[in-house]
Design a protein around this nucleic acid. Structure first.
Lengths: 252, 252
DNA sequence: ACCTGAACACCGTTCAAGT
DNA sequence: ACCTGAACACCGTTCAAGT
């Protein structure tokens, strides 16, 4: 009935940023599945077709909101000791992903694409740099990041699903355990029984699990680092001429 | 124009299995994004509405095809030494995922849901059992599976995207390296240069990387296993009365 | 019993037309 | 210059109607 739609400030002149921020907000509140061009237009007090002046298409919108999320991940400054740097970044990424759980649906084909936006190129370049400056060989830096990211993505993927699932209804292990036919799945039963006997809630437990797994991976990578290029193929060794030890800070 | 559509055997009387198998085939050939009820019906020589006699809705179809994929993963028999068991299963899962790359889009909210189908319950129950029978405490079995699965899902997720991306055009690192502004992203440049200097193709390299990361994780888990319940919360210890040592085989 | 036509409330996107 | 109406080719799903 009103000519200009829902929120008071919809008369700002529409821009890529305004569209993308509205998209993130909409996804946060309702999930990616309701994120359509038409709905997004409605949210901005405009018809869907108007959006196409500022974004190429829906794909562009999805890429854009992934970039917004990625840029919310704290990037450790060059010079940070690698365990702290990789740990801080992994923890920050996990927190950001949990704040925007819909991002899991975009992991596939967006977050981990090889052809990338500047935001994502800078992000992975910095992480590789941090590893290189801490004594990782080229291969091992690649290896380490691949391993940390695999763990980070895989863990968060599972975690987000569990939270979405029993989130609102707060269905806990205590209830789940009774839904599983225990004679058939004795080991699952055993786990659920064990988990529900613990005082810690699911959040606290997953925090602990994530941290522990990360430390185990870091321990493994530390051994890799010390062993240098031991696992590389024969033509690999070329250690960089250590072009920049510490003096190249990307951010504050 | 023909009354019964495309393939010769479309006059079999439509069943859940026939529908799900057609869905997997369609996804394999064209990707999940083209998998619609209407398209699926067309594929079976029938209108979309007919499908609703055999499947509840599209969600049911998607759950169904995930089950089909999961059931293609080889499940090691009880009694297998844990490193071999977990390694075989991870390698088999990876192969299956690479054969059905669209599965990555369903990782979110389907593969890792807590409320599960019998196929998936049996699958994870067996894996937990294998760990328990090899001396893992209840907590550590849970921990180990969470960690292995995180790595498996995360790694495969990234790998599938890379393959889909440069798959058909076979765009290799040699070409990618020239698209990245090397002054801005020196560490990325360094990696791409290094990777493209190796003789091994991307497939071979990722095989190696996957195997190496898996071994590093197994090494870490072996230490966890030996340390028993060291990382558990105080009320945890309860080791199972070893109800079945070896005599409970689930499969051939 | 099994299939379907028509309908409903949606999609993304284009393009000629309006202000 | 910026927005939009109408249109196209799609969605998932329901339900009364056909055979």
């Amino acid at each position: 009935m009103a000519v200009t739609a829902n929120n008071g400030e919809s008369r700002q002149p529409l821009s890529r940023d305004r569209i993308l921020n509205a998209a993130v907000l909409l996804a946060d509140r309702q999930g990616v599945e309701v994120l359509s061009m038409r709905r997004l237009g409605r949210e901005l007090g405009v018809r869907a077709m108007s959006l196409y002046k500022h974004v190429a298409n829906k794909d562009d919108v999805l890429d854009g909101i992934v970039d917004i999320v990625v840029s919310q991940i704290d990037l450790p400054p060059y010079g940070t000791e690698w365990r702290k740097a990789m740990g801080d970044r992994a923890r920050s990424a996990r927190q950001v992903f949990l704040q925007h759980p819909w991002i899991a649906a975009l992991f596939e084909s967006r977050l981990t694409r090889p052809q990338q936006t500047p935001v994502r190129l800078r992000y992975v370049n910095t992480l590789l740099g941090l590893l290189r400056q801490n004594g990782f060989s080229v291969s091992n830096a690649y290896r380490a990041l691949l391993m940390i990211d695999s763990y980070l993505y895989g863990f968060t993927l599972q975690e987000v699903n569990w939270r979405l699932e029993d989130g609102n209804a707060s269905r806990s292990e205590e209830e789940t355990v009774h839904q599983v036919p225990m004679e058939t799945y004795q080991y699952l039963f055993e786990i659920y029984t064990h988990l529900s006997s613990q005082n810690a809630g699911i959040s606290t437990r997953l925090n602990t699990e994530f941290a522990l797994g990360l430390e185990l991976i870091f321990d493994a990578l530390e051994r890799l680092r010390e062993n240098g290029t031991k696992f590389d193929s024969p033509d690999a060794p070329t250690p960089l001429p250590d072009s920049d030890g510490e003096d190249c800070k990307l951010q504050d």
